[in-house]
Design a protein around this nucleic acid. Structure first.
Length: 464
RNA sequence: GUCCCCAUCGUCUAGAGGCCUAGGACACCUCCCUUUCACGGAGGCGACCCGGGUUCGAAUCCCGGUGGGGACGCCA
């Protein structure tokens, strides 16, 4: 049988890091098994779904390179089909109308909670042989409920958590269609997973409790039951649950912040899954290795340091032309225009091994294209009066230098010797004068790239 | 409250009864490299939640406890 997996986000917000990992694992599982990966937008919550959110999800998937073989399907466009199935269930007696109002239900829930019981529908409109139902009120539009079995257990072997068993007694008759006739999530999922031929449902572990209900509905419909794999959640760096209010950020925010998709993907792959001691690998490699057996069943905490490490790694590997295009845009956002000189490709070559993010890369090289922003602490420490004679001397020497790193280095050395100093004693003030800060790559290389006239003018501007 | 799930260094993890004196990675510390900061290299610190069982032998299996998380919507 062909493996078919799906990612089924609801468009009520952006694609966040947890959703991205779920998508990644579903995608990888399909790739690994030469199957198909389907994208399905679960937009039945009309009140909260937005076209912007749909777009944000699509953008996120695209940025990460998570391509799908089918879809995106939109549940709102499948209404007719859901209603057909609903009618079938009504006819078969596996679903029924319920005339309870929301207020009635709220009151019921509250009293059950107060008694320490699990809040659940009490079945007052559930048809039973020998039971006489009240007369349906004319003024209340009914919802449709699924007639869940009341005895026995629902048991399935979860592909990551192992055998899970839940008693039907714990389940109530859930609403599968609202009073306005629109079907609800649990019902649409069942119909779609069934009709789209999903073989493995890979999703967040907050769906574990929905699974027995879905299995019951699938059985009521005579459908094939897919396998389930429930992924544990990703916690924020502080160990707390990620939520819209707390720490959850869009994957596109990582783009903004200067992370490469390769780094995000590699990081996410290792968050909850492992292949021995492997830490760094391509998506191609990941798709060959990926399996459900090596997924951790416990929650994982997000760790920016490790992401940074991976990002730094992938920046080192990245093509300079790609980095140049990206960094040019980032600099433009800072109102810095990249000019032909110094050559951006060379500047990037000098800096790509020293940064964690593309934003860092952009801000670190900004001084090549605008006057340096001087750090007060560095200036106070290194731009001391006693060094100025040497710097003045350096300017004179540099004017005659053939502008190559070696020659520049020699000129500095000459000043060092003449003034009986150590190399850093000259290099550090130079660094601050040219870059504004006390850290940079080899100063002669920086100077070579910056260009003779610019170097001279920056030093002279810094001289008393 | 009820049900479900989870538990190895600070963090991500390896671990399928003897290979474990518990391995790797990030972070941290030290040293080396050095022209500052990084990069890189070499070391170091650091964990099996607790208690019972099963077994010749348990991080691994079972039970209980504790702790954490999730679910209990006319949300998904």
């Amino acid at each position: 049988m062909i493996v078919r997996t799906r990612f089924a986000p609801s468009p009520t917000g952006f694609l966040h890091i947890g959703g991205a990992r779920t998508a990644l694992f579903s995608w990888a599982f399909a790739k690994k098994n030469v199957g198909q990966f389907i994208l399905r937008i679960e937009d039945t919550d009309v009140a909260r779904s937005t076209p912007e959110a749909v777009q944000a999800i699509l953008d996120g998937m695209q940025w990460l390179g998570l391509d799908y073989d089918e879809g995106p399907f939109y549940q709102m466009q499948r209404m007719d089909r859901y209603k057909q199935v609903l009618q079938t269930m009504l006819d078969a007696g596996t679903a029924y109308y319920c005339y309870c109002t929301k207020d009635e239900l709220d009151a019921l829930r509250e009293s059950q909670m107060q008694q320490g019981a699990k809040p659940r529908y009490d079945g007052r409109w559930r048809p039973e042989s020998g039971k006489t139902l009240a007369t349906p009120p004319q003024d209340i539009p009914p919802v449709i409920r699924f007639k869940n079995p009341q005895v026995g257990n629902v048991v399935w072997r979860d592909l990551v958590k192992g055998e899970i068993s839940i008693a039907n007694q714990e389940l109530d008759d859930l609403i599968i269609a609202r009073a306005d006739g629109t079907p609800t999530y649990n019902f649409c999922v069942v119909v779609d997973d069934w009709e789209m031929g999903i073989t493995q449902v890979i999703r967040g572990d907050d769906h574990v409790n929905n699974t027995p209900r879905q299995i019951n509905m699938l059985m009521a419909l005579g459908a094939t039951i897919p396998q389930y794999a429930h992924l544990s959640m990703i916690l924020g760096s502080d160990g707390q649950k990620l939520s819209k209010r707390h720490g959850a950020v869009s994957v596109m925010q990582y783009h903004e912040d200067g992370y490469l998709p390769e780094a995000i993907l590699n990081y996410l792959a290792r968050l909850g899954w492992s292949h021995g001691d492997e830490e760094i690998f391509s998506m191609q490699q990941f798709c060959q290795w990926f399996d459900l057996d090596h997924i951790t069943s416990s929650a994982a905490q997000f760790n920016t340091e490790k992401l940074n490490w991976l990002n730094a790694h992938y920046i080192k590997l990245a093509d300079n032309n790609l980095l140049a295009a990206d960094v040019t845009e980032r600099l433009a956002k800072l109102n810095i225009k990249v000019t032909a000189q110094p050559p951006l490709l060379e500047v990037i070559g000098l800096y790509k091994e020293r940064v964690n993010t593309l934003n860092e890369l952009a801000t670190n090289i900004a001084y090549f294209y605008q006057q340096p922003v001087r750090d007060a602490v560095a200036a106070e420490k290194h731009l001391t009066a006693d060094i100025m004679p040497a710097m003045t001397n350096l300017v004179a020497l540099l004017k005659a230098v053939d502008w190559q790193p070696e020659a520049i280095h020699q000129a500095i050395n000459e000043v060092v010797t003449q003034h009986a100093l150590k190399f850093p004693k000259v290099a550090m003030p130079l660094r601050v004068m040219l870059t504004g800060i006390a850290q940079s790559p080899s100063i002669d290389q920086v100077m070579a790239l910056l260009g003779k006239s610019e170097v001279l003018s920056r030093i002279e501007a810094a001289l008393p």
